[in-house]
Design a protein around this nucleic acid. Sequence first.
DNA 1: TTCATAGTTCAATATATCCGAACTAACAGA
DNA 2: TCTGTTAGTTCGGATATATTGAACTATGAA
Lengths: 109, 109
Amino acid sequence: MHRMASFVHPDLEDVPLGAVLSALADPARRAIVRRLACDAEQEGGGLACSVAAPPDLPRATMSNHYTVLRAAGLVRARKVGVSVLHTLRRDEVERRFPGVLEAVLAVQE
Amino acid sequence: MHRMASFVHPDLEDVPLGAVLSALADPARRAIVRRLACDAEQEGGGLACSVAAPPDLPRATMSNHYTVLRAAGLVRARKVGVSVLHTLRRDEVERRFPGVLEAVLAVQE
DNA sequence: TTCATAGTTCAATATATCCGAACTAACAGA
DNA sequence: TCTGTTAGTTCGGATATATTGAACTATGAA
């Protein structure tokens, strides 16, 4: 039986550093995070999964990448209509792991 | 047939960010990197593999972790007698990925 | 209804990691 | 030169993780 989608958004205090680094180690996930970082608007914003993800990524793989990013506390999801909009939890991550995400985003690649 | 050990030390310019993040994502490898960061003496220094690694780590696993760390450009190895001494390539990593390693090291865990 | 779109879940497969066992390399003592 | 010891590597098989096609759910529009 298939279960319904329910997004997990851990408190950053419960996220280990390894989870964040592991999530950011994947190029497709970094691409998503970079796009969300550009989409800076705070409330009511966010990008649909397939908008932030690399264009030729298989859907199942994309969905899995978002699950990893949410579990690492890096992004927040909310369902709007038929889409799932994601935003970067930039300030929360910065408070918990100062400089880590910012340094990664600053790397040109 | 068993081949002889020969350490690979890539130019940092050839190392992708993902390799560094992936290497640092593992807790045992971070423990090694933290210990090498404390052992700050530059020339002639370095710590033997088993000295910097967590004490109860299986030797094959430990050796593999050092291979990953070297391939990520994070550490440099040189054989001295029966030991292999490792040093952190801290300045080189900092030049290539400013703030990344420092931010990771700054996290208390 | 019916259809389309966005994304998830499942399950099979591919890939990567872990680690015991066997090995090499370097040195010390007899 | 043996024999032994210590440090670490390599191999290979077991285990764990990642990828992705296909089936599915959820929402909205025609």
